[in-house]
Design a protein around this nucleic acid. Structure first.
Lengths: 167, 167
DNA sequence: TATTGTTATACTCTATAACTATA
DNA sequence: TATAGTTATAGAGTATAACAATA
């Protein structure tokens, strides 16, 4: 009655190391962002997503799709950013239902101010012990996993989402 | 004024992929654990830590060290587990200050009930797209990073913890 | 009818600081 | 004095469900 093989030690080690490394990294990065910019990691990600676009704008739904959030969670976070004057919200002219989030000059400035320290930290914590080639290998493997995870989301172990509310 | 090189595309890709993969995996795993066992991922980790020991016991501090928590956060989580009858707490006979957390039979039973689905999910989401060799390589790289992160925690970007409460 | 987004609400979790007790 | 752990408290974040408006 075991649908899959029970993970050999090598696989277990990979899993544990992944979880521990990402946990430590998230913690450290979140702290740096709060100290240097008063931003949570989530807020930073939203701002960085906006910064990627040349015009610094993006639809709510597009942001949500990238960052896993529930809609309401994104509304909350964007409201925080707006309160801080880092983004603005306007309704789209194309689709009156849609809301376009735009980074303000202050938002982009803060992003620019926080980014160097962020990059430094990632460099020191995550990449320092790897050669350039190893970093590429790591990125390649994780990239494939990401593709797999986002493509195969049947999530077979937790399939019914709308059928069995369980209680 | 750039203390470190600004991350080439390969490095950036590795960083982003790591964060996205771990985020997706955490989310999926947390959901499975809640559905099948009513456990948060943190609670599962505590229980699993106890399960590792032959006698199913461990000191609070030892758990906290492994799982990054603040003391009070661990107290809270262990209290939740105790409330659910999954662990008990007794003061150590060696050191009257210390508290020993022990998994109850129900706790170990729940762990056993939840583990197969957990392993399956990790297998399907994380490991399926990798060959055995690749999993080993991934684990090796991440293991080295973990060692580095836990050994070098000068956390140079956020050093003073007790000096500058900042406000 | 389906989609976009917000709101209300309730809950989980985390962290800080003050505190107790033992070493 | 230093260490182990708890408590009080307060805040941040998240999710669900109900809702309004547009497509």
């Amino acid at each position: 009655m075991s649908p899959t093989s029970p993970l050999d030690p090598e696989q277990l080690a990979a899993y544990f190391a992944l979880m521990e490394v990402s946990s430590l990294l998230q913690h450290a990065v979140d702290q740096q962002l709060r100290e240097e910019g008063g931003l949570s990691y989530t807020q930073f990600q939203i701002l960085a997503t906006l910064g990627e676009n040349p015009d610094g704008r993006r639809r709510m739904t597009d942001i949500a799709d990238r960052l896993v959030h529930s809609r309401s969670g994104l509304t909350y976070q964007v409201a925080q950013l707006a309160k801080a004057g880092l983004v603005t919200r306007e309704s789209s002219s194309d689709d009156e239902r849609a809301v376009i989030v735009a980074a303000t000059p202050q938002g982009l400035a803060l992003l620019g101010r926080v980014l160097p320290g962020h990059v430094d930290l990632v460099q020191q914590l995550l990449l320092a012990p790897l050669t350039a080639r190893e970093a590429t290998v790591l990125g390649g493997l994780l990239g494939r996993i990401r593709t797999h995870m986002t493509a195969i989301p049947p999530r077979s172990a937790a399939p019914r989402r709308k059928n069995a509310p369980k209680s």
